[in-house]
Simulated scan of single mutants.
Amino acid sequence: MKKELRDKIIAYNKQVAANKEKADDLLTLLGALPPGQVKNLLKDETCGAILAKYGITG
């Protein structure tokens, strides 16, 4: 395998791992919020759509 391709694959894998870690951290923070705060986020049009996209409902 060429070094350039190997480096590109490694960089991509690192980015995917970083994105997964961020998503897991945000879900952990969201889970720590009181239920009232989550309901407020769900009422917001933009936040509600994002949360619904990931299966988080009131």
Rank of each mutant, 00 (worst) to 15 (best):
N19W: 02
I9G: 02
G55K: 09
Y54C: 03
A11S: 12
A11T: 12
D7S: 10
L33M: 04
L26M: 03
I10A: 04
Q15C: 05
G58C: 05
K3W: 13
L26P: 05
E45Y: 06
C47E: 13
E45K: 12
G48I: 08
A17Y: 01
L30I: 00
N19S: 09
N13M: 12
L51C: 00
A52G: 06
E45W: 00
I50H: 09
D44W: 09
A18M: 14
Y54Q: 08
G48M: 08
K3H: 11
D24M: 01
Y54T: 01
G48P: 02
D24I: 13
R6I: 14
I10W: 07
A18R: 12
T28W: 07
A18C: 00
K8Y: 14
A49Q: 13
D7W: 00
A32C: 04
T46G: 02
G48Q: 01
L30C: 01
V38F: 06
T46C: 06
A52M: 10
A17R: 04
A32R: 15
C47K: 09
K3I: 15
Q37L: 04
L29G: 03
D44L: 03
I9S: 02
K20W: 10
K43N: 08
C47R: 10
V38L: 08
L33G: 03
K14L: 11
A18H: 05
Q15F: 06
K8N: 03
G55I: 01
E21M: 01
L5E: 13
P34I: 03
K39R: 15
L26I: 04
K3S: 10
K22G: 06
G36H: 11
K14H: 12
L42N: 13
T46S: 00
A23H: 07
I9W: 11
N40L: 15
T57A: 04
I10V: 15
K8M: 12
G55N: 05
K2T: 10
Q15K: 07
Q15T: 13
A52I: 02
G48F: 11
A32I: 01
C47G: 03
G58D: 14
K43S: 09
I10M: 03
